[in-house]
Amino acid sequence: MANDAHWWANADITADIYASMKRKEEQHIVFVGQSPQLHLRRYLVDWMAILCEKFEIDRHVLHLAVYMLDRFMDRYAIVQESQLHLLAFTCLQISTKFEEREEKVSKLSTYHGQSTITSANKEDYLQMELLLLQFFDWNITAPSAAHFLGYFLTEASGKCEKSFRNDYRDDCSEYSNVYMHKYTNYFLEISLQDHAFSFAKPSLIAASCIAASRVCLQLSPTWTAGLTKITQYKWEHIGPYIERMLRTHDVDEKAAKLQSKEKTNYSSEKTISYCGEAAVSYSRAL
């Protein structure tokens, strides 16, 4: 999509779309986090993410699917685990049908072996689909953090906000943009895994992903006036979410370190331990 990547960037509709997404986000069904199966949520979300990766489904689809899953689980207690699988799968399938390119919408049979869906219970699937759609009153255009992140990132880099890009060297901007996207995607994933982020507005999560990435990339200041303007969030809004994201990042990093140490000890060849992506990228950027 190199040629068309910014087909809309000059278009005057960008502001309109953002306004429409902000309005829509206000109408989102509130997440309460009262599902008796909340402890199974992480497992379901991971499973959905694996399916998306396997079938190369866009992350916007996953975000919409998780939105649906959260709200539905909040209000319906589903005791059987197989039913929860069916629910997660149906959320993903509805979301794919709605958001993805036509050719990405797979037949149910494609997922054989991936889920409990077999031809024998296609009827259950249809019933679940209808139940979900009725629950949402067919209103399934819910902009997610992934949607907002796309907007914020393109706005920020489009406006060439100096401190958003690399402060050190001009020719690094492309390079640092790549890292920015890598990190924001990572934090976006974290925001799906932990249901604590489902309480917040998607635009707030998207803004926090950018700030957390800037912390990791050691871009200073972490939050600029330009970003405040683009996202409409101040530091005090995003602070608690960044903290939570970075805590998870630390845990992930420690786990990675431990893993690589174990490997090193086992092979007893290299003494350099894995120092984490943040440090690597930072030193390269310098």
Binding site: K97, K107, L108, E129, I140, T141
Partner: peptide
């Protein structure tokens, strides 16, 4: 026995509801 609600129907209703 089919693939649930056709994609076109799902999109049409979803978008018009929106």
């Amino acid at each position: 026995g089919e693939e649930g609600i056709p994609m076109s129907t799902l999109r049409e209703i979803g978008l018009l509801k929106h």
